[in-house]
Computed example of a mutant assay.
Amino acid sequence: MSYTGMPINDDLLVKYLVGEATPAEAEAIQNWLAADAANRQEYENFKLIWDQSQQIAGTRNVDEDAAFIRLQNRLNKTEDAVPLVKVQKMKPGYWVGIAASVLLICTVAWLTISRYYSNDFISVVTIESNNEPRTTTLPDMSEVTLNSHSTLRYPEKFSGTIRPVTMKGEAFFKVSPDKTKPFIIKVNGVTVRVVGTSFNVKSRDGKTQVIVETGIVNVSEKSKSINLNPGEKVLVTKQEGLQAKENIRGRLYNYYATHQLVCDQTPLHELVASLNEVYGAHISIGNKAIENLPITTVFKDQPLDDVLLVIKETFKVKVDKGKKGIVLR
């Protein structure tokens, strides 16, 4: 019996193990397991490593994200582990030879498991930004700037065939190019894959947004996947999943990293949304006719009043300030 369903990969197996697989995905895995004894053995080996990752995570007060990083590193290190020993079939009566073979196999297994579960092998670094943005350099010299109240986790050393990290909140990545070792981010059920590029990832309130500045970025969620080019963005929500990609106007998304709001024919309502986030303001547009008016300029570390003055003079609108906020009319 051969299996011809959806591809079964590490990401799908992790979802199945933590109970997050869809009914269709769970059925596909069950069919894959039933198709071949080798598949069942592969699954049992995978589950063993995952269970041990979770157990160690519990003793170290590290959550599932860190366990995922350890899992990926262990799976990637499989090719580097102690080589398997081919044991020839013994004739009946050769008990000494059989005993020696069993001892050899047990020794190989012990060495392999010891290497998998050594403290150095599973060391995970956690970076938290708290109330202020924070910039850090990863082992591969990639640079990451975390927005406030964000978290990044990554292995102390990228020793496998991928560079796995997990994150919560928002971060701007400048990934060092390495075509032989993809950079993979796990965030809120979304997977972001690159080999060397710069992009912004924002995941808050159940929504994940990816915006690309340079290079090509692959974004996947469940069975859907999309490639983003510079100047494109995509949104993933729990209700609608991976949505269609869109073009962006300017660079409003990473003010916390650049201290600049770059507008390039940017609709006024998009600038207002960014101003509310950057300045903690409560600005609304009281006239729908001006919501999509385009603006092209650069604001760099300017007081909010100065920005509002530019908007007022550019569009000849009124800026009404009240106790409940600011209204553009």
Rank of each mutant, 00 (worst) to 15 (best):
S142Y: 06
R74I: 11
K47E: 15
T78Q: 13
I184E: 06
N292F: 08
D63T: 00
Q302M: 15
P303C: 05
P267E: 14
K86I: 13
R40C: 03
K288W: 03
W32V: 10
V85C: 05
V210M: 03
V108S: 02
M6D: 12
I29L: 14
N287A: 13
V192D: 06
A21S: 15
S220L: 03
R70G: 13
L252A: 05
S284R: 12
K222I: 07
L275A: 09
R251F: 10
V219F: 02
N131F: 11
H149L: 12
I122V: 13
P294K: 09
T59E: 15
I56Q: 08
M141Q: 14
E213K: 15
Q54S: 01
L304I: 04
T22Y: 02
K318W: 05
L146Q: 10
V190E: 03
Q55E: 08
V165P: 10
I113N: 09
Q243K: 10
S223D: 15
V85Q: 14
T237Y: 01
S53E: 07
V327E: 11
N287D: 15
D10S: 07
N61E: 09
E232F: 01
L75V: 00
V190K: 06
T197H: 01
K321C: 04
V87N: 00
K168H: 04
L275R: 05
Q260W: 04
A37H: 10
D63M: 04
N39M: 11
V298N: 11
K157T: 12
I29N: 10
P23A: 07
I248T: 08
L103N: 01
Y16S: 03
V317W: 08
I295A: 11
P182Y: 11
T135H: 03
L271D: 08
P182K: 07
K324M: 08
R249N: 14
I248S: 02
I49W: 04
S176P: 01
W32Y: 08
E20G: 03
Y253K: 11
T214V: 09
V327G: 02
P83K: 10
S129C: 03
T296Q: 04
R193K: 15
